[in-house]
Amino acid sequence: MALFDDKVKSQLSQLLSKIKNPIIINFFTQEIECPTCQTTHEFVQEIAGLNDKITLNVYDFLKNQDIAKEFGIDKIPAIIITDTHKNIKGLRFFGIPAGYEINSFITACLEVSGMAEPLPEAMISRIKKISKPIHIQVFVTLTCPYCPGAVATAHRLAIENPLITADMIESTTFTPLAVKHNVSSVPKVVINDIYEFVGAQPINVFLDMIEKI
């Protein structure tokens, strides 16, 4: 059975029709010992079927270890949205972006395709100045209406600076990781395993913390 009913499918097609330049959905999966991989695989397949500008590359986490390493993938299911030249590699989703997270997923597709809303000059220059590798993990649940905002903000930073990697992490799929970071309210944002905060905060709050690193 298809994941998207006709109504969702037509809404998604309409949203994805705004994609400007072609994008690649890089999907890491494996056939065994990954209870959510199969549904996530169906999800990316159905998404890729909605727009000609989307290419789906499916990688086996075990068999394609070299590519997993290139993307820095340490857990699955994982989705990385890139442009065709892989200049932008920092927009990642761990776990299925269903529920409210479908919104951050669509936003990521559009932004990587070149449809990112322009940011103020001063903010762009702050983001460009970041010179150390930054890893932002945004823990979410699929029933959280304001989590997609936090994910989109983290992803927006990753669009502007290739040193920034921003992950959506579905907390109930990766329970041990969520427990490690003491996630009991979402969205919870963890930056380089050093700084953390709870709630959908504006981009300058992310930047204030990143600049301390």
Partner: peptide
Amino acid sequence: LTGKGVAYCAICDAPLFK
């Protein structure tokens, strides 16, 4: 303890209390 077990958004955080 806000965000460490003290919560204000049940639809968001309920799945974390299974």
